[in-house]
Computed example of a mutant assay.
Amino acid sequence: MVEKVWGRDSLPPPFAAPESKRIGEIWFEPPPELPDLLVKYLFTSEKLSVQVHPSDAQAAEGEHGKEECWLVLAADPGAQLAVGFREAVDSEAMRAAALDGSIEHLLAWHDVAPGDFIYLPAGTVHAIGGGLSLIEIQQNSDTTYRLYDYGRPRELHLDKAIAVADGGPHEPALRRKVPEHGCVSLVDGPHFRLDRLVGSPDGATAARYSQAALLAIPLDAPLTVAGTTIEPGECALASGISEIRFAEGGRALLTQPT
């Protein structure tokens, strides 16, 4: 559990925040078999900073890039996510807007609801609003460059951020509503794949995960991995999909590096 200024002191089940702690993130430490893939839950009570992540090629020596995606699990009325800009902005305009705080108004804010899915390539300027519970799958990197933080006393990284930021709109094809039923391929590279399934995987999904280790994340019903029960709110390593037994009608995520 990771404390954040924008976190919550009351978390949705099955999680519980320690007394007097504002928990914003729950990380699942990547296993040695999959060191480059990180799974998180995020719980927000207020807006996160306006920020951006570099690609592997753009990251400083000794750091890694970060591409990520979000699946909305719960959202208060009016909850929003910001991804990319409403209109193209150049570096000078981005810097000026970051300095005077108007950058948040240049971003494209989207009303979101449970089942909304967004993929963020490296370089996408973004912000997460309050009142959200998300699950995030990402490259295992904590390299974050902040452009604006609503006056909070945290470091900004304007030069680094502007050097890697895409000043254009987010590609609409990278945002979607996940259907309630069936197996759905959400991401297929370049760094990881991610599938949402309900019940057992279909043949195509099983084939994608048959040859290598993967992470299984039950969302609303337990599953078993090599005979061990994995409850919602947990994340498990499997050496292959054949080790996993899925609950009938239960929703789960599967992910692995590509």
Rank of each mutant, 00 (worst) to 15 (best):
V5Q: 12
D9Y: 05
D9R: 12
L11F: 04
A16C: 13
P18C: 06
E19D: 11
I23Q: 04
E25Y: 02
I26Q: 14
E29S: 12
E29Q: 13
P30Y: 08
P30F: 06
E33M: 05
L34V: 05
L34Q: 01
P35T: 01
L37E: 12
K40N: 13
L42W: 05
T44G: 01
L48K: 08
V52M: 04
P54K: 03
S55T: 12
Q58M: 14
A60Q: 14
E61Q: 13
E61C: 04
G62T: 05
H64E: 15
G65E: 12
E68H: 09
W70H: 14
L71Y: 04
A74L: 08
A74T: 03
A75D: 07
P77R: 14
P77I: 05
G84K: 02
R86W: 00
A88D: 07
V89L: 15
V89C: 15
V89S: 14
M94K: 06
M94N: 10
L99D: 12
D100V: 04
G101F: 06
S102Y: 03
E104G: 03
L107K: 00
W109S: 05
D111W: 12
D116F: 02
I118P: 00
Y119A: 15
Y119Q: 13
Y119W: 14
L120F: 04
A122Q: 07
T124S: 13
I128W: 00
G129M: 05
G129A: 06
G130V: 00
G131A: 09
I135K: 08
Q138M: 10
Q139V: 12
D142Y: 02
T143L: 09
R146K: 06
L147K: 10
L147Q: 09
Y148A: 09
D149C: 12
R154C: 01
R154L: 01
H157G: 03
A163K: 11
D166L: 09
G167V: 06
G168W: 02
E171T: 15
P172M: 04
A173Q: 09
L174H: 09
R175E: 07
K177L: 10
V178I: 12
P179Y: 14
H181C: 13
G182E: 03
C183T: 15
V184E: 14
V187D: 01
H191Q: 03
R193G: 11
R196I: 13
R196A: 15
G199N: 07
S200M: 07
D202A: 11
A207C: 08
Y209C: 11
A213E: 12
A213V: 02
L215R: 06
A216T: 08
P218Q: 02
L219N: 02
D220E: 07
A221C: 07
A226W: 04
A226N: 07
G227S: 06
T228D: 13
I230L: 02
E231G: 00
A236Q: 07
S239D: 12
I241Y: 01
S242Q: 12
F246D: 07
G249E: 04
G250T: 00
Q256K: 14
P257G: 10
